[in-house]
């Protein structure tokens, strides 16, 4: 076993060169390079974390803005609906007013016309009575040869008309 057979001859060389090369590895690679590599990894990790945080913040901001926009939009819609309802109500009221005015006018005209009709009817009634009285006088004179006076004929006609 050379490890033991050569121990006395080689231990100094082994230890010396191991310390030289492992020392070099430790100071140059371990102390010099590894912290830089770790720092790079750490920088990347923190960069990623920061980016993620920024993205999250931007997302929250967008959500907030959307919420605000939605609120504004709802307000606008409500306003528009209120205006619309008001306009509708106004229009309806105006229409009603005009209809009422027209109705009163029509009512007045109707009443006047009815008055005129009534007057005409009474006038016609009077005329009919006169004509009927004259006709009755005439008929009586011709049939019975009796001369009936005008007032009595009119009285009889009136009685007959009233009894139907």
């Amino acid at each position: 076993m050379p490890q033991i057979a050569q121990l006395a001859d080689t231990y100094a060389s082994q230890i010396f060169w191991l310390l030289v090369f492992f020392g070099f590895t430790f100071f140059v690679v371990g102390k010099g390079m590894v912290p830089k590599v770790l720092a790079t990894v750490e920088a990347r990790d923190s960069q990623i974390a920061a980016d993620l945080a920024a993205a999250q913040a931007a997302r929250n901001e967008a959500d907030r803005q959307e919420e605000a926009w939605r609120q504004r939009e709802n307000e606008n819609r409500a306003n528009a609906q209120a205006v619309l309802a008001k306009a509708k109500a106004d229009a309806a009221a105006k229409t009603e007013q005009r209809l009422a005015k027209a109705q009163t006018k029509i009512d007045a005209k109707l009443a006047e016309a009815e008055g005129r009709i009534a007057a005409a009817r009474t006038a016609a009634m009077g005329e009919i009575e006169t004509v009927a009285a004259e006709a009755a006088q005439d008929i009586v004179q011709r049939l019975a040869g009796v001369k009936v006076t005008k007032p009595s004929a009119a009285k009889a006609v009136k009685e007959a008309l009233a009894h139907g």
Binding site: S13, Q14, W17, V29, V37
Partner: peptide
């Protein structure tokens, strides 16, 4: 002390060089 450069030391050297090159190659940051 006999600290001759041996084949053992040679491979320590090679290991050190290869390892240093390996880690240095990853040092682009």
């Amino acid at each position: 002390y006999d600290v001759s450069f041996t084949n053992s030391a040679m491979w320590m050297l090679i290991t050190t060089v290869v390892l240093t090159l390996f880690v240095a190659g990853g040092l682009k940051r």
